[in-house]
Amino acid sequence: MAKVVVDVMPKPEILDPQGQAVARALPRLGFDGVADVRQGKHFELEVDDSVDDATLAKIAEGFLSNPVIEDFVVRRVSE
């Protein structure tokens, strides 16, 4: 088994109202100096050794993210 992390983030040109709402809340809570926040999704997958990188890319691109609005990064974090 291996642990695989897939991070999905809104594309830079896509408005991220959730991230902006978090960014606007920070100064109200007394946290200054945070210029910007982007909010995305973080997936942790436990996968068999038989699952190759091409399959992981298909999972990330075809299901976990929507390539119209999101970018993704796939990382194997342990073997």
């Binding site: 809104p10 109202p17 959730q18 609005i69």
Partner: peptide, 10 residues
């Protein structure tokens, strides 16, 4: 084509 995303004012 395209996608629907969160409303601009949430």
């Amino acid at each position: 084509p395209g996608a629907l995303v969160r409303n601009h004012k949430l």
